[in-house]
Design a protein around this nucleic acid. Sequence first.
DNA 1: TATCATACGGAGCTACGATTCCGTTTCGGG
DNA 2: CCCGAAACGGAATCGTAGCTCCGTATGATA
Lengths: 195, 195
Amino acid sequence: MNTTTPTKPMRADARRNRERILTAARALFARERPDVQIDDVAREAGVGVGTVYRHFPDKQALMGELVKERFKIFNERMRRAIAEGEDQPFEALAAAIRDNAASVAEDAATRFALMSGGEAVFEHAGAEKDEFLRLARKLVLRARRAGELRPDFQAHDVPMVMCGVCATIDRRGAPWDWRRHLELVISGMASTSER
Amino acid sequence: MNTTTPTKPMRADARRNRERILTAARALFARERPDVQIDDVAREAGVGVGTVYRHFPDKQALMGELVKERFKIFNERMRRAIAEGEDQPFEALAAAIRDNAASVAEDAATRFALMSGGEAVFEHAGAEKDEFLRLARKLVLRARRAGELRPDFQAHDVPMVMCGVCATIDRRGAPWDWRRHLELVISGMASTSER
DNA sequence: TATCATACGGAGCTACGATTCCGTTTCGGG
DNA sequence: CCCGAAACGGAATCGTAGCTCCGTATGATA
């Protein structure tokens, strides 16, 4: 289950390089405009292309790993919301969504992968995605029971709205503010009687 | 100003082919999964690649034309909302947004261009985009004056929310429904006191 | 219908970016 | 300190998709 120690201990330099590659990829996506090339990642990481391909069979796998890590962060945040939000179920859900949005906002790599990546990228993070949905379901059910959430809101709608907000984050020079978008959506999620 | 008759009358076959190319492009985008190639467009249109390039200097220009046409449709709908929605300013705005969303939902080409297209695509439809914003401003101001719209909602937010909903339309196999997303956002747009 | 400007077709050129291959280097257990 | 397995580097390969070029066909005008 532990992905950092799959089966064999892995040589020290290999472990280090793997990390460097992931870091480099994140850095490049944060800086570059369009897509990022494997060659660039390799250069930024101070490593040869071959090394990148030893760690990640293809580009999709690299992207997939970035997405997987981000989902782990999402999930941690969701768990916290479940643990701490007993008394304010809706606010707990909303806060988790806000934090997760802020989290992707800082992570152009995941945003790019999420918007333009193929199936394979998603499959790579499949387990984490499932876990995310499981957690979302809990939060949604609880908020709905409390009557604070619009009754037709589904667990699936959590990734849906995050996807929507995500799409409005990096439009270069767009004159809008994705944070307002987020607040708009969140207030739309509230049950009609609540606000 | 009239784009269909720029300066010279254009030979009959040329006019016909131009239309075929646009139709073919739309059809392919609606059918294919990923991006669509110029060669495919040419084949589908029953035309040589060279002909495509005679009419559109590059791929961006072709995409741009598709986007431009869609914006013209948007704008028509917005004008109607302005003309007919005197009595229900918020509903007029909401209805226009709903119809426009349904409109892009049927137009994978524009969706793709909007999500993955570069600057050039947008510039091609620049005039229509500006007009769209002008119309949005009118609708938004009227609805806000009527107190039916949340006060911090801007004209720019109209394309913003459309962009967000757009992003959730073609996710293959996503278990969510973009129509619910749309309704969520629209109810979030309403002024707090209204609903 | 003769003429010519305009438009067409599509093979081929080019650029670019993912991926492979293999000789060299480095870790780590004995 | 030595050796073999594990990793590395990066030049070279391969495939793809956008775009060009030029010989041929065709609509429009007199």
